[in-house]
Design a protein around this nucleic acid. Structure first.
Lengths: 221, 221
DNA sequence: TGTACATCAGTGAACGCGCGTTCACTGATGTAC
DNA sequence: TGTACATCAGTGAACGCGCGTTCACTGATGTAC
């Protein structure tokens, strides 16, 4: 691993070109979705021949994997930064929606329809649990300051299940109520986001922001 | 439109072949997702030449559109039948999950990542509101028998928003609380389903059925 | 500072493949008198 | 019932395209003495 500042010009150039390839790849994905990603098309857009890209990525699959990794990293960093700035659960929720709306294809790369046969690399699961830990932190803080998200009707059965299956909490010391709150946060907001991004509310005349805010209020109460 | 029983043998044969093409199309989609659908591959599988299929579908796009229509119809019929058999909201929720798990690609055709540039035909929105009406019926009945899904903390702001944007209810006489309940049902269950189908819970060691049941209990209380 | 060599970016040709779609045509099935 | 004609399913060849990927090669950039 090269130490920053000690890169040779060649290394710098390589990194720069890899970055540009990825940038063009995102543009293509934005235009035609991930299945429409083509190495040849990227090369043409950069004024290079197709095979040239193989100096930078071993295959189309490796490029896509890298984009998925970047998408996860982007989300983890965005959520992590917001939490670091003192955002509470509701703030993280707003951050999540802003992140999703900022680039829906980036969202879809993580949470969209999975490609049959494709398996994400192992290291992204580490990033995924990094995100979960941030949520658990926020949920734990929220739990200290507020009542349960269901107004005193905590779901004992769910909390028992969550308490017994804590692999996903990665040793996080959150209480059962906080586990539950973090999970509800995650699943409910993704429900709204995926329906909104796919346009399922537009035909209904509803304002997705209003629905989203409502769930945030409910989760924070 | 041909009257049933008055079809000529040729019409019958046409209908039969269209059905077989669609059946093979579903198999292909199950194996490689919707982007991997190929008319030539279907033809080969049926022992025919590629161009032969153009007697039955004008283009690949028309075939996909037809599959989407069928997916919507399947969901509307399944939910409608359950409601007709006296299922309450929780029952419809279980029906929804069973339908989704029965064929995830069928679910994705409706609720998965949209293909940029593709627009679903108008008539599917009619089917979509048919589904919503079924939900509104059930939510209205539930409202008469139970308390609000948030235990007496109804979200006045959300209900006001919903009451002011009732295009999606298509003239349904549901009360504001029922509108809200139906929408929460829809968005929360889809959040769980989309995460479950994409495998986002498998790495966490959680049982999606448990989470789903928890939301159903909450929505029905 | 200058020369000899190694490294590496990028090219162009080629391979093999599959795609959607069109077209002119053959042969079977149905219809009309 | 039998003949003449129209309808229609399916074929095979072809078009034009783009894809991922390999390979041998050129030319520029960097390194070592």
């Amino acid at each position: 691993m090269a130490v920053a500042g000690k890169e040779t010009p060649r290394e710098r150039y390589r990194a720069q070109l890899r970055a540009e390839i990825k940038a063009r790849a995102w543009e293509q994905i934005a235009a035609a979705g991930a299945p429409g990603l083509s190495l040849n098309a990227i090369a043409k857009q950069m004024g290079m021949s197709g095979p040239a890209l193989y100096r930078y990525f071993a295959s189309r699959d490796e490029l896509i994997t890298e984009l998925i990794r970047d998408a996860y990293r982007s989300l983890a960093d965005t959520i992590g930064t917001a939490a670091g700035s003192g955002a509470d659960l509701a703030g993280l929720g707003r951050t999540l929606r802003a992140w999703a709306l900022d680039d829906r294809q980036r969202y879809y790369l993580i949470y969209g329809t999975p490609v049959p046969g494709y398996h994400a690399p192992d290291d992204v699961t580490a990033i995924a649990s990094e995100i979960m830990e941030t949520l658990l932190d926020a949920a734990q803080s929220a739990g200290a300051a507020a009542e349960s998200p269901d107004d005193g009707h905590p779901d004992a059965r769910l909390e028992a299940h969550l308490a017994q299956h804590r692999q996903w909490t990665a040793g996080h010391p959150a209480e059962p109520a906080a586990l539950r709150r973090a999970l509800l946060f995650w699943t409910r907001l993704h429900g709204l986001l995926s329906l909104e991004l796919a346009g399922h509310f537009t035909g209904m005349g509803l304002d997705p922001a209003e629905l989203y805010d409502s769930e945030l209020r409910h989760l924070s109460q």
